[in-house]
């Protein structure tokens, strides 16, 4: 069985805008089934990366391959669905007209999108027949965003590039989008998710790539990111806290008030659990690490 071509591969991808460096030597591989979070502060190079991957701008140096094909090859882009961050639709058309137009922009000889798939997407995102019949210029921002999402998704692409997909959407619709993303991932689709909303990235992505000033800062799985984070644990013992034993177990004491302690934990938990087993505990709180802290730390770190 021949190997599945890598959905996205960039080699030394570089883009200069005159004297300004938009992206500098990005080497990136996005594997099939991944949901990759593309993160970074404004001007980090996220949009430049996406526009290079879609052949909307041309690299100063380096190359992009989509499914093993040069990005300029329409056969490569036939497998891609794209939702831009600043979505602009043809507002003279109706929602249905826009979806038909986007479906019509397919390679010659390619069958149209499955109408049942479009209907299912409309239903899950809460778009009614009346919404689709209305001119886009009369639609709310949220409705336009839903139309943009369906336009990207209706042909069931192997690679979805979603730039801030939940902008302007209510929490219920956001949930529906997360579900769709998980389903797509489970079905072997690949998703390139650019977002500023870290809680969304935390929920949806399997790996994150962080850019800053056009350069790659880090590329790590969400699990690695969590594992590397210091966590805090608050414990209230029945008697006085066994401070010496807790410190000996490799924790850092942040607060201490008689029987109550707050600990900072960076390593393995085995030794700490041994101490806790020997001393009766009345209450214990051990929240999930906050990824916001991790990202703040990464944003501040020097580029690779």
């Amino acid at each position: 069985m021949s190997p599945v071509p890598t959905p996205v591969q960039t080699r030394d991808l570089t883009k200069h805008y005159g004297e300004t460096v938009g992206l500098d030597g990005l080497d990136l591989v996005v594997e099939q089934g991944e949901v990759l979070g593309l993160l970074g502060p404004n001007g980090a190079g996220k949009t430049t990366t996406i526009r290079l991957v879609l052949d909307l701008i041309r690299p100063t140096r380096g190359e992009v391959l989509l499914f093993g094909l040069p990005v300029g090859d329409p056969a490569a882009r036939a497998r891609v669905g794209y939702l831009p961050g600043e979505l602009s639709l043809d507002e003279r058309l109706s929602g249905r007209g826009m979806l038909d137009l986007m479906d019509g922009l397919r390679a010659p000889g390619t069958p149209p999108a499955d109408s049942r798939r479009r209907a299912e997407l409309c239903e899950r995102l809460g778009l009614t027949a009346a919404d689709l019949a209305r001119r886009l210029r009369d639609d709310s921002r949220g409705t336009k965003q839903k139309i943009g999402l369906i336009a990207a998704w209706q042909h069931d692409p192997d690679l979805l590039i979603l730039d801030e997909p939940t902008t302007g959407l209510d929490p219920l619709v956001r949930e529906a989008i997360f579900e769709l993303m998980h389903e797509a991932c489970a079905a072997g689709r690949t998703i390139f998710h650019s977002s500023h909303v870290l809680s969304e990235v935390d929920r949806t992505c399997t790996r994150v790539v962080v850019l800053r000033d056009g350069r790659l800062v880090t590329s790590r799985s969400i699990d690695d990111l969590r594992a590397g984070l210091a966590r805090t644990m608050a414990v209230r013992f029945r008697d006085d806290a066994p401070i010496e034993a807790l410190v000996a177990a490799g924790t850092e004491l942040i607060e201490h008030d008689g029987a109550r302690v707050v600990l900072r934990i960076t390593g393995e938990l085995d030794a700490l659990l041994g101490v806790l087993a020997l001393h009766p505990v009345e209450h214990l709180a051990f929240p999930e690490p906050d990824l916001e802290d991790a990202f703040a730390e990464i944003y501040g770190a020097p580029s690779a």
Partner: peptide, 14 residues
Amino acid sequence: DEGTLDLFLARPVT
């Protein structure tokens, strides 16, 4: 100008 060109050319249209 409207921004629709990005959307169109991200599809398999040369």
